[in-house]
């Protein structure tokens, strides 16, 4: 009993102090960070991350399976895990994803399927349908709702890509016990520019409907073939981000770290196999 009380207090503290900040990051908790510098993923075309811009599926057009894990501020309970699978077909590029955030007493789940199509040589349009659920308590159990995602990807000219992504554009919420738990509604607009084949710059604006607008800025540099270095900044207070990526035959590994000045270090990694 004593253990339970201590645990409950700990969880309450966690949510009081950390969750407002997590939500202020303009992301749903069940959405894992991408490999893009400073998480500026909307125009990052090197890999598709679950629940990020689904139009990237048509930019990659590769059959792949991926596992992702993100730990926030070195606290196990604030971790998100995800797995995804992408399958290009003649008619449409398909992505399937599942993610899990939290721990036994409180967790959020998201599963979805994405359909992306290249409508023109330099333009892709995608929609994704997700089921987002949260576990509130043993008495309430799971409650969830269906939410949508929309993504666009345009290559304006060689090396200059503009991306747009709307997560939960209809502002759907989860209804429970005559109350509502909002799911973040995020509008993301970003651009990537290839200064050279090795050096790419990224800029992105995110706006979650209830939080201030947030900018992201980053760069990726390929030192040698298959080895990437990434860095960037985002948010207020300024969060620096540092990451790296390796391509080993059909395997791709990405690691990323960022440091929030008050809350500490977060890390994320992903492992992908490209068929």
């Amino acid at each position: 009993m004593k253990h339970v009380t201590y645990f409950s207090i700990r969880i309450t503290v966690l949510f009081l102090f950390f969750v407002p900040h997590l939500w202020a990051q303009n992301e749903a908790l069940a959405v894992v960070a991408s490999a893009a510098p400073a998480n500026a993923s909307v125009a990052y075309t090197k890999t598709w991350t679950a629940f990020h811009n689904p139009a990237v599926l048509s930019a990659r057009q590769s059959k792949a399976v991926a596992l992702q894990y993100q730990n926030r501020y070195s606290i196990k309970e604030l971790s998100t895990g995800a797995m995804s699978f992408s399958l290009p077909t003649k008619a449409v590029d398909i992505g399937v994803a599942f993610s899990y955030f939290g721990y036994e007493d409180y967790h959020e789940l998201c599963s979805g399927i994405a359909f992306s199509r290249r409508l023109a040589k330099r333009f892709s349009l995608a929609v994704q349908v997700n089921y987002y659920a949260a576990y509130f308590s043993p008495s309430l159990g799971y409650k969830g709702n269906i939410i949508a995602q929309v993504g666009l990807l345009s290559e304006i000219k060689q090396g200059w890509v503009i991306g747009f992504h709307a997560f939960n554009p209809a502002q759907t919420a989860i209804n429970y016990a005559e109350s509502q738990k909002p799911i973040p509604a995020v509008f993301a607009l970003g651009s990537s520019y290839a200064f050279s084949p090795e050096l790419h710059g990224f800029f992105q604006l995110d706006k979650e409907i209830n939080h201030p607008i947030q900018w992201r800025f980053g760069a990726e540099y390929q030192f040698v073939a298959g080895f990437y270095f990434r860095t960037g900044f985002y948010g207020n207070p300024l969060v620096p981000s540092l990451g790296t990526g390796f391509m080993l035959n059909k395997w791709r590994i990405d690691l990323q770290f960022e440091r929030q000045s008050l809350l500490g270090i977060s890390s994320s990694c992903s492992l992908q196999y490209i068929f």
Binding site: A120, K121, F123, L189
Partner: peptide, 14 residues
């Protein structure tokens, strides 16, 4: 504002 191919036009506004 930008046009892609002959039948797609896009616009981003901030």
């Amino acid at each position: 504002q930008y046009a892609l191919d002959d039948n797609i036009n896009l616009q981003n506004t901030i």
